[in-house]
Simulated assay, not measured.
Amino acid sequence: MAKRGKHKHKGRPPFAAAPAAPPSPAAVDDASAAADVDADVELDAQADVQADVQASGAEALEASGMTATEAGETASIAPARVPVRPARLLRSPFLALADYEQRSLAHVAGLPEQLDAPGLWRGVAYRVGRHRLTSGFDEVVEILPLPALTHVPGALPWLLGIANIRGSLLPVVDLKQFLEGERTVLHERQRVLVVRQPGGDVAVTIDELYGQRSFVEAQAIDASALMDGRYAHFVDRAYRMNDQDWGVFSLERLSRTPEFRQAAA
Rank of each mutant, 00 (worst) to 15 (best):
M241I: 02
D236S: 02
R132T: 07
A96C: 05
E188R: 06
L156T: 14
E259F: 01
K176F: 12
R191H: 12
F137L: 11
A96L: 13
L133N: 06
D207P: 13
S76L: 12
A80S: 13
P14S: 08
V37G: 04
D36Q: 09
E182A: 15
D30H: 06
L160E: 07
D245M: 00
G247V: 08
G57Q: 05
A51V: 13
A71S: 15
A80W: 09
R256Y: 11
L254D: 06
V124A: 14
V202S: 02
G200F: 07
E62N: 01
Q244C: 12
Y231A: 03
L169I: 10
L89A: 03
G119N: 07
A27S: 14
G5H: 05
Q190M: 07
G57V: 02
D99G: 01
T74D: 07
R91D: 13
A109F: 05
E42G: 11
Q177W: 03
R88Y: 13
A220R: 14
V82N: 09
L209P: 09
V128G: 07
R253P: 05
G65D: 03
M241H: 06
P145R: 02
I162M: 15
S224F: 03
R183N: 10
L146K: 01
S255C: 02
A58S: 08
S24L: 06
D228G: 09
A78G: 11
D116S: 14
V141G: 02
E70T: 06
G229E: 07
L159S: 12
E188I: 10
V124W: 07
A96S: 08
V141N: 01
R127L: 03
R122H: 04
P22K: 11
A148F: 04
V172M: 10
W246K: 01
A27P: 06
I221R: 02
A55Y: 11
R230P: 09
M1K: 03
N242T: 05
P198Q: 01
Y126D: 04
V28Q: 10
G72H: 04
L120N: 00
A18C: 04
L169C: 04
N164C: 10
A17F: 01
L89N: 12
A71Q: 11
E217P: 00
T69P: 00
L111Q: 08
S92L: 10
V124S: 11
S168T: 12
Q262L: 01
V84N: 03
A148C: 05
I77D: 12
A51S: 12
L169G: 06
G119M: 02
D207G: 15
D44T: 07
E139L: 11
P157E: 07
P83E: 12
R127H: 10
M241R: 11
P147H: 14
R191K: 10
A20E: 14
V172I: 15
P171R: 15
L159K: 05
A155W: 09
H131M: 15
R166H: 13
V235D: 09
A96F: 04
